[in-house]
Design a protein around this nucleic acid. Structure first.
Lengths: 132, 132
DNA sequence: ATTCTCAATGTTATGTTATTACATCAATTG
DNA sequence: CAATTGATGTAATAACATAACATTGAGAAT
């Protein structure tokens, strides 16, 4: 599932997310792209689905919203576990990839013979800037 | 926010979740409680909100669904971080409370001066029974 | 070049999840 | 009793997501 050449819709959605300063909902993206010919939610959801598969967009489950990946990290199928720190004030999201967390979760899962497909870690709180 | 005496609606919702074998959506709960006089989503959502505050019900963000807490653990305001292992096949959810994970996330947050209010950890996959 | 195929797209409708707004009721308390 | 507070009931609507079906477009096979 490599980030091959993106389609027009995928490109537009990705750019929208890239330029955003906070996570966007699918419908917010839709509104921002009406001028570019978007008319229905599916156009957004389909693009998001692919971009998420490619690993260049992440879905934030606790927010029902999406962000462009800011991780220097691999976009490959390796799919490292990523933790998100989401600021309630400014909306800024930082991605954290930490082997210790990943290993520990793997141990805990194995301990109960659980086979993990996908892991979600989201911290909601307040970032340094907004706390200051 | 102690689990003081529950109201009628809260009791009904909690019992519904307790008897369920998998997470339930708010609307599923509503349907199960129609015979008991429930008629509107808010009756469910309001009860869920309180039960969640009390710590005796958890919301699974990646599922938009709810489970009764099965954790022997404290229902107090201490609010330990809980990781959920959610089986895609049978729906069974197990709660994992692990100080190592908690500590590590705390370290990572602190490192970037992030003040965490609430942490979500959800592993989606397949439990031992369903893999066998 | 023509046909085949498959992924992406467009469009409408609908399904699912969650909240706003407002009225009422019941228990407590000053 | 009046006043406050928390729970409830109800209707309407907002927000998030998918199903179903028709069409288009780009590349591969012939």
């Amino acid at each position: 599932m490599e980030p091959r050449k993106l389609t027009r819709n995928q490109t537009l959605v990705l750019e929208t997310l890239t330029h955003a300063e906070a996570p966007l909902s699918a419908y917010t993206i839709l509104d921002k792209l009406r001028d570019h010919g978007f008319r229905a939610p599916l156009q957004v959801y389909r693009a998001l689905e692919k971009l998420t598969e490619f690993g260049i967009v992440h879905r934030l489950e606790s927010l029902n919203a999406f962000v462009a990946c800011t991780h220097p990290h691999d976009h490959g199928p390796e799919k490292a576990v990523i933790a998100f720190a989401i600021c309630e004030d400014c909306g800024q999201v930082s991605e954290i990839s930490d082997p210790e967390i990943e290993d520990r979760l793997a141990v805990l899962a194995t301990k109960q013979q659980f086979k993990t497909d996908k892991t979600t870690i989201e911290m909601r709180g307040h970032c340094g800037n907004c706390t200051a």
